[in-house]
Design a protein around this nucleic acid. Structure first.
Lengths: 221, 221, 221, 221
DNA sequence: TATGAATGAGAGTTCATTCAT
DNA sequence: TATGAATGAACTCTCATTCAT
């Protein structure tokens, strides 16, 4: 038994501590080994709980990781919104992109979770959980979207959320293309393959820059 | 025994037919159930072969699907190159994007495979297989990249492959975001969530348009 | 579920019952079919457990049978030590051999396990398990060895364990030569082969007799 | 195709070459990896034949190894008979045992095969093969047995074969007890276990000595 | 005679999930 | 609420043997 958590979580507060402990354990293991190679048994052990206990808090492995994604996304959104708020109106495109890029620094885990989200996390989860997740996502998206609309004057109303989705899309895309397995890494050391070696940050920054410039151009008559 | 294939694949041609049969079976099942819910046993059964026989042709499930991806990518690249060749030099951005979009029509499977590629297919596969796959990919990328450079005069040399990667990135990104599970689909019918309902083709087309316009603008002084 | 064992083995006692049930099932099947033709699945079924449950108690098939051997050896050693203790000091060689032979009556299974021990059981088992097994074996050997030294005055100190090993050797040897397959049994009915028909007890008794007499003779000046 | 063997074995001579090649391959692999870890595919490959071809010469894996054992036993018997013939009548017990021991030098493979013989090789083999093997064995045993009777005058008629069986028994017994797996070897390095460390040659020699002395003593009134 | 593709049962093992305690 | 024993389907993969060619 985890001494820190006490014997039984009776109060809502204690239950939240348990949930938090599980998420922390899951995140650590996810970083170390990836989603597929982490088992519920490992998570339980790391969180100093019994296997069965995990299921009192999360009905499936996917639900646990979906919650983890929600937390990470929430933090990211808050960071993004805050950084956008600090931008002057109609900034250099470059400044806008830099701000977005800054929100991704040190967020490898969140980026990897984003890639898993659609492929695995939204499976084997109840309607209700998905709905809550999506409502949460929408909520944050709309706030961040509005902020984008405020900052970039050439973005018309409602387009903010779409731009957010496009950013999301590129994070997933570049994320996957650069989050490669050790074997691939080794193979890519072959000189002939140098054109296929891609840097996440550089590629994302460039493509975001193009995107924003493109939007700007297409918006003005 | 599969009557169509004969009893034994002795000639190289017959062996290729067997490989093809396995790929076809795998593709069908992949469409029906997705990568994770398809087992080698199912593929064997669908291809009317014994379980052990599959392993004579592909050492792992990942190797089989990697080959499937290679085939689909090859076809896609050929289509892309051909459609680019049919474009006049310096076409309307819209025409360029339309051409790219046209290559994706009816290619759901290829798009889904592209998403899996980095996450799972390039694991549990030998160095050699990955190397061959990558060399193949590079080869096609360079031809298509050169064609892009020819078609879009503002794209300077070597940038064609990068643009291809960016297209690739967006196909993966939008692909994942729109290739959703039945539960999610159901949830998204909720009116409140309409801003999160995304159409693959529309989103990709728009974002490609922006990207190309952005590149054009950033390239000209 | 096995009604006798209850639903869940929570206490150490209940777990031991489970282990015992598995050993019993394994022993029965071993008698019926031999080591190679017994699978973990069969053992599980016979013990009325699920396949996965077996692996909670024994990590490999070899570990299970090693434990079975340990139990059988332990019982044999206890019997041997007790029978030796009941012997007067410096008995007739014949009486000594008879005592040893008596410990083997109705111990076919133990004899067959002894033969497998070195060939297969000590493979695919962890260092630790082997070590424990060997320590156990040594422990019993030393007690029995000391008893042999007490009983046979011409046996000098430390030689008891060696004699035990020689007994062990002959049990294995005659055991293997007489534990023959049905086909061989059938073949040996051929009159010409009568010199090759060997009886375990008779052969062992004779060879032990010779051995002890030989030791006696070689020890006295 | 193995160039040395030619394309097709039509003549009896060529067929024998094939059989010999298979036995050689099997012996090499048996030394390297042991019976269980050698597959028919490996043997075929080593002998530069196709898998199916092996089955034209030996109906089962066991039959092949049984033949291998027969060859090795034959050679051993010839050596034994020859060495016994070179002994003077009524030699020192020690000289007799030395002669037997000398026949085992460099015959690890034969010794290991002997241990497998009863446990696995005589299974999954046709009646006929076993009969031939046994007749062969009997034949050699009788010659060698007669030689023993000649050499050791206290051995009465018919007892020679029995003594041979007892020698056989001890070779198997000590062979198994000393032919240990790497794990066991490692474990036996533990100082506490030193009494369990056994040397094949030393143990066998001692036990043969005792046996012969015992027989001598028990034979004389 | 020779081949090697095909078989397919079965091996050991894992693990998300359930549920008696 | 917490436990962890139990489940059992599913997994990948092996290999002696068969048999169409």
């Amino acid at each position: 038994m985890n001494k820190m958590l006490g014997k039984r979580a009776v109060s809502a507060h204690q239950k939240n501590l348990r949930r938090e402990a599980l998420l922390t354990a899951a995140r650590e293991l996810f970083v170390e080994a990836g989603f597929f190679d982490v088992s519920m048994a490992m998570i339980a052990k790391r969180a100093a709980m019994a296997k069965g206990t995990v299921y009192l808090y999360y009905k499936t492995k996917e639900e646990l990781f979906l919650e983890l994604s929600r937390r990470d996304l929430e933090i990211w959104f808050e960071d993004l919104i805050s950084k956008l708020q600090n931008l002057p109106e109609n900034p250099e495109t470059h400044a806008f992109v830099k701000a977005v890029m800054a929100t991704l620094e040190g967020r490898q885990t969140a980026i990897r979770l984003l890639s898993l989200l659609h492929l695995v996390l939204e499976q084997n989860v109840s309607r209700e959980e998905v709905l809550n997740f999506k409502l949460d996502l929408l909520n944050h998206s709309e706030i961040a979207g509005a902020e984008i609309e405020r900052v970039l004057p050439f973005v018309h109303q409602g387009q903010g959320v779409e731009i957010l989705a496009a950013i999301h899309c590129q994070i997933i895309g570049w994320g996957q293309m650069t989050d490669i397995s050790p074997v691939v890494n080794e193979v890519l050391e072959d000189k002939r393959l140098s054109p296929l070696r891609i840097d996440f940050a550089a590629s994302l920054q460039t493509s975001l820059l193009c995107m924003v410039e493109g939007i700007k151009k297409l918006s003005s008559p």
